[in-house]
């Protein structure tokens, strides 16, 4: 399968297989007008299988979102068809309005204008919990 290489844009590589669509959705890449390619289950020597996202525009992506979905992913910035930067993916301490709390007993389900905030409560196991009700995202 051939996907055109990009001249100016970003490549999110080494995404754990199966997480590409979640990342596409949370990064709101569906709202872009440029070409976006999601390549699923690509053979990888290091990972076995992986997903890749290519965006044919020089956009800024929210690295916190990538760090939440898959901190092992890599972000390469391409300019004039050359790799000019590899971005470091942080493990975000806090996620604001990235994911929504699904607990119907949580105050976020009724209070208007309230941000959906998740805090990193267990760094080792990468556990996030709602700031208000302490539920995990689901």
């Amino acid at each position: 399968m051939n996907i055109d290489s990009i001249k100016n844009g970003i490549v999110i590589d080494h995404i754990a297989a199966g997480k590409g669509m979640q990342l596409y959705r949370l990064l709101k890449l569906d709202e872009l007008d440029c070409s976006v390619a999601i390549i699923k289950n690509v053979a990888s020597k290091k990972m076995g299988r992986k997903d890749i996202i290519k965006v044919d525009a020089a956009i800024e992506v929210d690295l916190d979102v990538i760090g939440f979905v898959d901190p092992e992913a890599t972000v390469n910035v391409i300019r004039d068809s050359k790799l000019v930067e590899k971005k470091t993916i942080p493990t975000p301490r806090e996620l604001v309005n990235v994911i929504r709390c699904k607990n119907p007993r949580c105050i976020t389900s009724v209070e208007p204008g309230l941000n959906h905030v998740f805090k990193l409560t267990d760094e080792k196991n990468k556990v996030y919990r709602c700031l208000y009700c302490e539920s995990k995202p689901n």
Partner: peptide, 27 residues
Amino acid sequence: RHPKEGAPLVASAHSCVPIINAGDGGH
């Protein structure tokens, strides 16, 4: 006291006096 979990935390962000949580849902 509020049936929704986290309600007193929201209240504390908007109050100029101390808030005591007297029970928030099943939290």
